[in-house]
């Protein structure tokens, strides 16, 4: 009758764990469910409908914001991933050299400073540049986003590199492959899962950013999260739920790709 004594068990811990899982997902699920509600209310369910999605797609503001968000995320994730890949190649699989830890600290700098500080600091610099040169445009936003996508892309690429031994590259070199050929024929193909994972994270953090974008964005550069923030301030509508759901699904798809690519690594 006596159950086997479980060394690891602690009273109440499993309940708390399940509660946390519930608490993390219940609000999000509520939001998603009520985006399909055929009613103005976000708490009283009447009938399933895609009405709010149609309204969101018809909304010019949302369409424009989506276009800007995607453009911004593509450009910054593209450059962020390239720079992160290069930096990862220079900081892994080597004996520690002078300045390596400094380089490491600089790359991770955007993660260590509170976002609001980065946001107002970028605003100050860009305002100064705008004043001096008169140049305006979305380029500033792209620069600001590229900066903080680099450390996110860097992490999985670095992890992937550290899992790769140098043996294959050494074998290629032994067979007289020149360094560039070794890189493109051996290192790079092996590194692709890491690069894809990094690009996904870079894309997601750019797509989801609020604070830096809020401060740096000029007129007409409203991204989807900024649009949502403005809409929430004006009042809660199921249309916000619909747009939010679309953005959530987009993030989850990219993060799921990240996890799938990462998983392959351990096999």
């Amino acid at each position: 009758m006596a159950k086997r004594f479980d060394l690891r068990r602690q009273t109440g811990f499993s309940e708390i764990a399940w509660f946390c899982l519930f608490a993390l997902y219940a609000p999000i699920l509520m939001l998603v469910v009520f985006s399909f509600n055929d009613n103005r209310s976000v708490v009283k369910w009447t009938e399933f409908s895609l009405r709010w999605y149609y309204e969101a797609f018809d909304n010019d503001g949302i369409r424009a914001a989506t276009a800007i968000s995607l453009k911004l995320a593509f450009v910054s994730a593209f450059f962020g991933t390239i720079f992160a890949t290069m930096a990862a190649l220079a900081t892994t699989r080597t004996k520690p050299y002078k300045g390596m830890y400094l380089a490491y600290a600089v790359i991770n700098q955007p993660l260590m400073i509170p976002e609001i500080v980065t946001a107002i600091a970028s605003l100050s610099l860009f305002a100064l540049i705008k004043q001096l040169t008169g140049v305006t445009g979305i380029g500033y936003l792209m620069l600001a986003h590229t900066v903080f996508t680099i450390p996110f892309a860097y992490m999985p690429i670095r992890a992937r590199l550290e899992d790769m031994t140098l043996t294959l590259e050494q074998a290629a070199a032994d067979l007289y492959a020149p360094p560039t050929k070794v890189f493109w024929k051996v290192t790079f193909p092996l590194l692709i899962p890491g690069i894809v994972a990094g690009a996904m994270l870079a894309f997601v953090v750019s797509l989801d950013d609020v604070i830096i974008t809020l401060m740096v964005a000029g007129p007409g550069e409203t991204t989807l999260p900024i649009f949502i923030l403005g809409a929430i301030r004006r009042g809660i509508t199921p249309e916000i739920n619909a747009v939010s759901t679309i953005l959530l699904v987009a993030s989850i798809v990219f993060v799921a790709i990240f996890f799938l690519v990462q998983k392959k690594r351990t096999k």
Binding site: F83, A84, V106, Q109, I120, V147
Partner: peptide, 23 residues
């Protein structure tokens, strides 16, 4: 190594660290 690190460090230096000194 230097060439690989340069673009990332320059862009973070110019648009991540320099803004802080402006602040």
């Amino acid at each position: 190594r230097l060439y690989l690190l340069l673009p990332g460090l320059v862009i973070i230096g110019l648009f991540g660290l320099m803004p802080l000194s402006i602040t």
